[in-house]
Structure formats: structure tokens, C-alpha cells
Design a protein around this nucleic acid. Structure first.
Lengths: 364, 364
DNA sequence: TTGTAGGCGTTATCAT
DNA sequence: ATGATAACGCCTACAA
């Protein structure tokens, strides 16, 4: 039975009838109840030693009983600090992002900060609007993940006079504080791993053009091949958009080649997911027919079939570092401008020895 | 005599070059630059018709040039509305949650609200703390996803006098506004689908005890079996915790049975992910040896191997509905108390006809 | 059409 | 140890 009925008793939200005093108690209300002045209440609630222990106790009791909650709004107005952080992400529903957000939120909370979350949908205009709305909220600091604006923030921010930290900045500039992974080293490790397994035709499925992380990861791939004097075949370098759907099409392309790759480096795990699906649809086996590797180590990488070889990115930790860094900045301390995190290769079962191929020239 | 030493001494902004910059411009700064009073600025910026079109234009120009941003905190103090929503989730990094969050954030933003995000880590105490911190922030409304506190909010909230909407409330109470999926119908559809495929030994891997959604989904499972007079074997009902890891162990249990199930209904897709992994590790095939179905239709359900049969939950839409509902409530309108969303069975490739089994008694 | 005079709920700065 | 009183930046009467 579907009960879409509203309760006829206004049990939950009785704020319509008469205009009764629907106001949370203010510090003055408490002062009146406690028969002291409101600054005394303020002091008592902040555990100031400047107030008599007994009265302080009494005040706190009264405050508690009447459900008093100091208004952060009023406090923010006078102290000029809101203890608030603005967080802008491209999409919360991306598993990578949501892990970073978790790290940020928890760290912020531990330090007594509230966080405003806003989703830019990867739209630079929207991203700017959000930052402006954060300016109005008078946030004490801002964190941006996977920004496509990156260095372009500088002017806006000097105007806002609010510190900012970027996570996985996609458009790096010199003086921007940021936390990022060693992309090049990460993908290089993957590619070396693949080469070590005897692969020679190794493809790369990238992200869209213009992303710093993609550029760096591709550089790592290229380095590994160069080191072994394996040519980088242009037809083995294709692009997706960081999501499975596009990766499927990219992989389809690769499999349509007359001499398809025996291994694939993917820009990230989401890309790998799509690639694996495509491979399966083509009736090939992983890793027997083709090896595949991702980047990020999302939780799902442990549950693909077979589990995915990838590069671990400590996402929560990165969020934590960004936040701690921001907090330092907000309290006026200087801080490290670029934090680079080491990437860790995680070998699972989606990569294996290359099968003998007509093109293969044994070398080592 | 009220000498408030206003006039030229009005120190609001000592524009001397030496110590400016420390502050974002205030409405008074703009007023001075535009040679009008600050209420005029206020009106101009709100496009009030009460101000001369020309001067309004001039004021807006000046405001823009000086990068003026009205302080939401000051405004909130006087209007007693912050245009802010508090959102508490159990974990942002859960894919289900992050989809709901996306829906909420976008809708809120479209309506001019900022959202505070807080992660309770599924800890009821923390959940309460968060709500209190939201009270201090004077949020205009609150949304809670997968609350474990549920109806227990009522007292706290009537004290806060802030409307609240729950998404997938796990502890429903009569007068709590909430948005939820038809859990029972959803799992019933899955189970019927399985029965229709000839399965008779159908297992259920649930969540922890005490979750409303689990209880309802299990009820749906039971209904489907009852309808076909298939007994519900206790050994076929096991529990995980909604995450893959625990689901693996649960599935291991099931596979250790002397007569293991030929199909499994999982509480959610994350559970299914773990179950599939376990099945693979045991060397069995999906769906040839065993069929498996999830619930939620996370993006990953399309990329498992094989793609997962599941029940679609329109997560973003649910977030959107919750938010729209909350906005109504915040503006004092009455609104639907319980919104129930229809669940949709999505048949993919993880479910197939039951294989002949010694125990099988053809029936249909 | 514009300006003046509060006041929102705090904290900060003085007194006492 | 406590109390007046003044900001903080904005909005909203009400006055001009």
C-alpha cells in the first residue's frame, strides 16, 4: 500500500499556524535566564577562565537545557572567520572524486570546519560561479579537485584573498598550491611491468586532450617503451574520456586493428572497466589474450574479473593532505606549494605474460 | 546627544593606501564610491525598481569593478535565512550515496542554495553531532541519506525548527518526510524473475540486521517464493553488510552448502560484486552455474562480467525529489510526507535458466 | 527616488 | 569576575 498521505497532525513541522515565537534562543535569552549579561554567557560557553566557575556551570546548564546553539552566522560576522571550507568538484558521483571528498570532509570536520560542497559538472563557467558563491559565503578556504581552470584561479583568488588548494590540478601553474600524484612514474611503472611480461604491442587509452594528468601518464607510458626501444605506434594510442562508455569504443578501435595490442595501459580504472567490457564482447580473454591495466585503484579494481592491475592513488590521503595544507594556509602559515604523492603499482590478475605472436621478436 | 561619530570619521574604510586590502569591500565601500547611501546600493544590487535606473546601473558597474560580493553571513543574520542546506550522509564514497548527493547538490544549486556536506561514517553519535553543527550554521533545511537515526530526529528537529527530509530512511517513523524506493516490490520482481527462470534454490544475501531496506527487500524475496510455494530455507539466507568484502564471505558460506543455491538475490550491487568474486574464485560460472542479481543499478552493474541483473533505483532523481520537497517545506508549504519511488527490474546477463538439478522438480 | 536609523546575534573592548 | 557598549555587514522600515 502506497501511502502518499500527509500527516494531518502537523507533527513534524508546525511552522504555519499563528506567528508564534519560532526562533532559536539567542545568547541574550540565556543571559536573561541566568541573570547575567550576555558577554558573560559568551565567556562561559567558551570556557573562558574569566568567569566564575560556579556561574559558568550554571550558565552552561541553562544553555543546554534550552537547546541553545550559538549562531555561527553571527559569530562569523564579527570574527570574520566562518570556519568553513568550500569544496568544488567536477562530479561527486565519480568514484575517484568521492574518495577524495571523503578524505577532505573528515579532515575538515576533525579540525572543526564545515564544508560546502559544489559540483561543477566539469563546466568551467559553473566552476567560476561556484567560487563566487563561496566568496559570498565568506569561506575561509577553498579546495578544488581536478580543476580545469587551475592556474586561472589566481586572479580571482587574490581578489578574494582566500587560500586555495587544488587536488590533481589539470592546468598547473607555478604558484598554485596543489596535491597531486606522480602520474608519469605511475604509468611508467605499469608500462614497464607490461614490457617485463614480454609485451611489445602495448596500447594506451587516454583521456581527452588537454588534461595534465593524461599528458603525464602518457609521458610515463612513452618513457617505458622508449627505454626498451619499443616504438610508440600512433595507432595504439587512442582516447576516451575517463569513463567506461567511451573506453569501450576506444577499445573497439584497438581490436579492429590488423595487429591488435597484447596489452593496454588505461588512463584510469573507469577506462579499464570499459575496455575490459569491450574485450569480453569480442570474445577475448583477459589476461590470456590481452593484458589490461588501470590507474587509481578504485575499490572496484579488486572486484573486476579478473581483478585489475593498476596504480594505487591514495585518494583519501590526498584529500586529507590538501585539507591540512589548506588549514595551515588559512591560519597564515606558509606551506608547501606542490605536494607530490608517490604512486604504487598494484599487480593483480589482469596482466600476464604475452603470448607468442608472429610479430614477436624475442629479445631478452 | 547621540554622537555616534559618524560623518567623515566613519572609519568603516580608511581608504589610505597603507592599510587597505585586508578586507573585501563592503556595501558601504561601494556606497562611498558611488556617492550614494548604502541602502541604495543594496536596492540597486537587488534590482529593486525603487532606485533610479541610471544610478542603479552605475552602482552595479562600480560593484562589479571592485569585485564586491555581498556577504551571505551578514545577510543571513538579518534575514534569518541562510539559503543553505545541510546534507548528512553515511559515506560519500559509497556509489549509491554519491549519486544521490549529485542529485541533491544540483537541485539545491539550481534553486540558489548552498549545501553543507557531512559524513557520519554511519555512526549515530556523529550523526547527531553533525545535525547540531548544522543547527549552529543555521541551515534552512536538512537532508539525511540512509539515516540510522531516522524517526529519532523528531525531537531534535522540532527543537531546531528546521525541516528535514530523509532519503532511504532506515528507521521510519510516521511523520518524517522521506523519499524511498519500493524495496519490497523491487526484490520481489527479482525473485520472481529468478523463479521464472526455473530456479528453486534461491539464496538471499542481506545487509546487517535492523535496516529497514534490508527487511523490506527480504520481505519481497519471501513473497515471491511464497507465491510459488517454494520454501524459504534458512540456510539460504545469509548476511553481509552491503559491501563486497563481507558479501564474499557470505557467498563462500552459501557455496559450502551440500546443496548450494542456483541463484542469489543480493541486497545491493556492492553485495553482488563480492558474491560474484567469490563464485569466480570457486571456479564456477555466472550465469551458467549460478545466477546472481543485485539492487541499485550502480554504473558498475553495466560493467561487471557478465553485466548484472539488478533493480534500478533512480538515485539522482531521488536526490532531486528530496531536495525539491525540502525546498517546499522550507518555504512553509505543506508537502507529501512519504514519497515512494517505483523500482524497475533491469535484466542483464548475470541471470539465466536454472540448470537441471537433482533437486529440481519441474513445476511451472 | 533616496537617506537615516535601527537591529539581526555574536565577540571584543573597554570599564567597573 | 562581570557588565555596558560598540562593532561586524547587511536589510528594512520609515522619513525626507
Amino acid at each position: 500500500m502506497f501511502d502518499k498521505h500527509k500527516g494531518n497532525l502537523d507533527g513534524a513541522a508546525p511552522q504555519d499556524d499563528s506567528k508564534r515565537i519560532l526562533r532559536q534562543p539567542s545568547i541574550k535569552d540565556i543571559a536573561r535566564l541566568a541573570r547575567v549579561s550576555h558577554p558573560t554567557v559568551s565567556r562561559a560557553l567558551q570556557n573562558s577562565p574569566l568567569v566564575n566557575a560556579k556561574t559558568a556551570e550554571r550558565i552552561r546548564k541553562i544553555a543546554k537545557e534550552s537547546g541553545y546553539r550559538a549562531s555561527a552566522v553571527a559569530r562569523g560576522l564579527v570574527t570574520r572567520r566562518t570556519r568553513t571550507i568550500g569544496l568544488v568538484v567536477t562530479t561527486v558521483s565519480d568514484p575517484f572524486t568521492s574518495e577524495v571528498v571523503t578524505g577532505i570532509e573528515q579532515t575538515a570536520n576533525d579540525h572543526g570546519y564545515c564544508v560546502f560542497l559544489a559540483d561543477s559538472n566539469a563546466d568551467p563557467d559553473r566552476e567560476k560561479k561556484i567560487v563566487q558563491s563561496f566568496a559570498e559565503q565568506r569561506v575561509d578556504g577553498i579546495i578544488v579537485t581536478s580543476s580545469r581552470v587551475g592556474a586561472l584561479y589566481l586572479p580571482l583568488l587574490s581578489e578574494m584573498m582566500v587560500p586555495i588548494v587544488l587536488v590533481n590540478d589539470q592546468h598547473p601553474g607555478a604558484f598554485v598550491h596543489s596535491v597531486m600524484i606522480c602520474n608519469r612514474e605511475g604509468t611508467r611503472a605499469v608500462a614497464e611491468h607490461l614490457v617485463g611480461l614480454g609485451h611489445r604491442r602495448i596500447a594506451y587509452i587516454g583521456d581527452q586532450f588537454g588534461y595534465q594528468s593524461d599528458t603525464e601518464r602518457f609521458a610515463g607510458y612513452r618513457e617505458a617503451l622508449d627505454a626498451e626501444k619499443i616504438p610508440v605506434h600512433p595507432e595504439l594510442v587512442v582516447r576516451g574520456n575517463g569513463k567506461p562508455e567511451a573506453a569501450m569504443r576506444a577499445m573497439d578501435q584497438l581490436l579492429a586493428l590488423s595487429d591488435p595490442p597484447t596489452a593496454v595501459c588505461c588512463y584510469n580504472d573507469m577506462t579499464a572497466l570499459g575496455a575490459m567490457r569491450s574485450i569480453r564482447i569480442h570474445g577475448l580473454r583477459i589476461p590470456e589474450d590481452i593484458s589490461i591495466a588501470g590507474f587509481d585503484d578504485l575499490f572496484v579494481a579488486s572486484y573486476t574479473d579478473p581483478p585489475l592491475t593498476t596504480v594505487r592513488q591514495p585518494m583519501r590521503r590526498m584529500g586529507q593532505l590538501a585539507t591540512e595544507n589548506l588549514i595551515k594556509l588559512m591560519s597564515g602559515q606558509k606551506s608547501v606549494v606542490k605536494i607530490k604523492i608517490k604512486a604504487e603499482l598494484i599487480v593483480r590478475e589482469s596482466t600476464a605474460m604475452a603470448r607468442k605472436s608472429k610479430h614477436q621478436i624475442a629479445k631478452r
